[in-house]
């Protein structure tokens, strides 16, 4: 009955499917393949089963990297989400300043990752950089290349500077979609600023904030360029997060099997976290719907 229904659409989808297969599925399968084999030079492989997996999971080094990764991700989420919402709340809802604010907010998002790293690297240099000079000038012993705490501080400030805008823009989009009548009703009901936020703005922003948190989670969990450009994971291993460790294993030590297994575990962690978070948020969303 519906055979003529939009059959043409498939022709447009096919190239995309092919593209996805080449740049996502096939590489992924290759990694799966590596993760269960031992490789020697000259393309000689042995099947190893789950050996690499158990090795990775039991390694102190992996756990440490994962721990650093989790601390980093949750720290920036804890800063960027509330800060982003706060900035969005302060932005004007109409008038000429709207576009000015939006452009200012969008600026950091337009700068490539490695450039951000380079900018902050120079900006924070204790002897040359403005930030480093000022901090040292006012009495802090600040040197991100030597002190782990300073490296962390720089990394987090950098990420917050770079990505809070994304949360701001999403939260702002959620905010301006709230009809005026809600604010007027709240005024009439004598609601405090906090009550307006808690009962009108926050519920109406929930969907976009879910998206914002998901995006920021996934992206920060996979952060590589910034710590790499800043200190290459140092000082010591202090900023060696998962992706940096992975590259060290794969390209530094050329442990292809171990790196592959680690990649898969890494991938699954991101997948499971995102999935659980999304389902929990959306289940609440549907509650009371009928």
């Amino acid at each position: 009955m519906t055979k003529t229904w939009n059959n043409k659409a498939w022709f447009f989808v096919l190239p995309v499917l092919a593209l996805v297969a080449f740049n996502a599925l096939i590489p992924l399968m290759t990694v799966v393949n590596y993760s269960v084999q031992e490789s020697f030079g000259g393309n000689v492989f042995f099947f190893e089963g789950t050996k690499w997996y158990s090795q990775v999971l039991n390694s102190e080094r992996f756990r440490a990297a994962l721990g650093r990764q989790l601390i980093f991700t949750f720290t920036i989420l804890a800063i960027e989400v509330p800060l982003g919402v706060l900035i969005a709340l302060c932005m004007p809802r109409r008038g000429v300043w709207v576009s000015v604010c939006l452009v200012l907010m969008a600026l950091p998002l337009l700068i490539p990752w490695n450039v951000v790293g380079a900018i902050w690297n120079i900006f924070a240099l204790p002897d040359l950089g403005l930030l480093g000079r000022v901090l040292n000038g006012i009495g802090f012993d600040y040197n991100f290349t030597r002190q782990a705490g300073d490296a962390w501080f720089t990394l987090i400030v950098m990420d917050v500077w770079h990505w809070t805008s994304l949360v701001v823009l999403l939260a702002y989009a959620g905010l301006i979609s709230i009809p005026d009548a809600y604010y007027q009703a709240a005024k009439i009901d004598g609601a405090s600023r906090w009550a307006v936020f808690r009962h009108i703005q926050l519920p109406k922003m929930k969907r976009v904030l879910t998206i914002a948190i998901l995006l920021r989670f996934m992206d920060s969990f996979m952060i590589y360029t910034e710590p790499f450009v800043l200190t290459g994971g140092g000082p010591g291993n202090s900023t060696t997060v998962l992706s940096i460790d992975l590259v060290k294993i794969a390209l530094g030590q050329f442990d292809l099997g171990q790196a592959a297994a680690m990649s898969i575990i890494y991938f699954l962690i991101v997948l499971v976290f995102s999935w659980v978070f999304y389902t929990v948020m959306m289940r609440n969303e549907g509650e009371g719907q009928s």
Binding site: M1, T2, K3, T4, W5, N6
Partner: peptide, 10 residues
């Protein structure tokens, strides 16, 4: 429509 089956027609 006008005697013609247009069920699947865009």
């Amino acid at each position: 429509f006008a005697g013609e089956d247009v069920t699947g027609m865009a």
